[in-house]
Design a protein around this nucleic acid. Structure first.
Lengths: 121, 121
DNA sequence: CGGTATCCCTCCGGATACTG
DNA sequence: CAGTATCCGGAGGGATACCG
């Protein structure tokens, strides 16, 4: 019931705010990738072949702007840029897990049953 | 974390699936409203003044198509249509709560007290 | 290597008017 | 009452080429 008011008041509804932060098409994927490793731009692109450079840059910038990931640039030639998850970004992982579990259970999406380090491309 | 492989495998990523279902602009709001009451079309529109009829209809149809809400039509003149949440829809309320709590805590969005989720868990 | 710039097209979504 | 119909601007997002 309070939930209703939270939204009705419409004072920056936290649900919408959260969705704005993690709802981007590639953001959950990026966050999960960075949860384990610090990765360079091209490496991310390899791991997500479907994303175009423009979109990848956009999603990374937004995640950085929201403080979920950090971008470290090494002034070298050739350039080197490393993306990693921040402490704030780590706090969102349980939220993603919730989304994953609901989707898996109620939408019948599998592919999470035996997820050890066995899966490979 | 296991999340990575779930997403890397990319076989209908459950996170994306969940976001597709609840990520619509007005869907969390509609679900929360219907969590407490069965409501008629115009009543929903009153409670969410910002939504246009076109968008409201679209979001309702999508929620219905995904099985989260049900639409009951009374063949009367004037017409009467009631929307209510389904059992499946109720299972998503804890997910919304997770989103709300994260947004409230880490994005500093207030305006919440407690959420009543009628499903036990 | 790590991006921009540009083109282009689709779809989102608001506003308004209308209808069975 | 519960929606459609229509118009329209703008954002989303793919493809390709180019740059520091």
């Amino acid at each position: 019931m309070e939930l209703v008011h939270a939204i009705q008041n419409h004072c920056n509804c936290p649900i919408e705010a959260t969705l704005n932060v993690i709802g981007g098409k590639w953001k959950p994927m990026i966050l999960c990738l960075l949860a384990n490793d610090t990765l360079r731009y091209n490496r991310i692109q390899q791991l997500i072949p479907e994303v175009s450079p423009k979109m990848l840059t956009k999603q990374l910038r937004e995640l950085e702007g929201d403080g979920l990931i950090s971008r470290k640039m090494y002034p070298e030639i050739p350039p080197k840029v490393e993306y990693s998850i921040t402490d704030l970004g780590r706090t969102v992982l349980p939220v993603l897990k919730t989304l994953l579990e609901w989707g898996a259970e109620y939408l019948g999406k599998k592919c999470i049953a035996t997820i050890q380090v066995n899966a490979d491309n």
